[in-house]
Simulated assay, not measured.
Amino acid sequence: MNPSSFKILYVEDEQFLGRIVKDSLESRGFQVLMLPDGRQVIEQFKRFQPHICVLDVMLPYKDGFTIAQEIRQLEPKIPILFLTAKTQAEDAVQGFQSGGNDYIRKPFSLEELIVRIQNLLQLTQGQTTARSDGTITIGRYHFLPQRYELRLGDEVRKLSHRESELLSIFAENQNKIINRQDILMRVWRDDSFFNSRNLDVYITKLRGLLKDDPSIQILSIKNVGYHFLVG
């Protein structure tokens, strides 16, 4: 990954911290546009067209969560990293709900921030699409949804129709947050308690099917859904 080819929109109201972070990122070759508050973020986002957004949560005029929701409406797939001084788990959930891909708590090391930015960029830029034969790559696995097959090396695992439906949704959303209700409505056309319990069973099955690649995780996000990590 060549940092000079990537642009970062960085919103931070702490001037001293912002300057240190901006200088550090630019010293690594990134192009950085730093803004001090939420007033002109959307206007500058459209002009600058960044590859990733790094947003402080507590900002004057407009908070980072609101900004992220507005950015998501313009560009659904751009990675968003939150910087937050908050420590409550509910705040992390709110960050994911508003469209964030990752968050880091203050105070943080510059090296950790840079690594997280690089990881998000690699995941976004490297997302795999289906091959011409319909095969989708998920980590070390090859998924053939039309044949209901999941392959790992020479091993072929046959999937049920429901397993294949669910895995297709996760394959489409690698390294993204997937809303639980969206899954229920797409697969079962109903989000009843009974179907919700069925989903829990199938999530356990998927975790079992994918367990031979430790880089793949299906993380449960309480009251939200799942974060499908591949990488």
Rank of each mutant, 00 (worst) to 15 (best):
132 S>K: 09
164 S>I: 04
171 A>T: 07
2 N>L: 15
214 P>G: 10
80 I>Q: 01
41 V>Q: 02
97 Q>T: 15
182 D>R: 10
175 N>G: 06
124 T>Y: 09
71 I>L: 08
198 N>M: 09
225 G>K: 00
219 L>M: 06
45 F>G: 04
44 Q>M: 11
231 G>I: 05
143 F>E: 01
121 L>P: 06
43 E>G: 11
83 L>T: 00
182 D>C: 07
148 Y>H: 10
223 N>M: 13
225 G>V: 03
177 I>H: 11
220 S>Q: 11
186 R>A: 15
51 H>W: 10
196 S>G: 15
92 A>L: 13
193 F>R: 12
161 H>P: 08
63 D>V: 05
97 Q>A: 15
4 S>W: 11
205 K>S: 05
12 E>I: 06
39 R>I: 09
48 F>K: 06
72 R>M: 10
21 V>K: 00
173 N>R: 06
3 P>E: 09
218 I>T: 02
125 Q>E: 11
32 V>R: 04
166 L>V: 04
72 R>V: 14
212 D>K: 11
179 N>K: 14
153 G>N: 09
76 P>H: 03
100 G>F: 01
110 L>Q: 13
42 I>S: 11
153 G>S: 08
87 T>K: 10
178 I>F: 05
129 T>M: 12
201 V>C: 07
68 A>F: 04
25 L>R: 05
113 L>N: 05
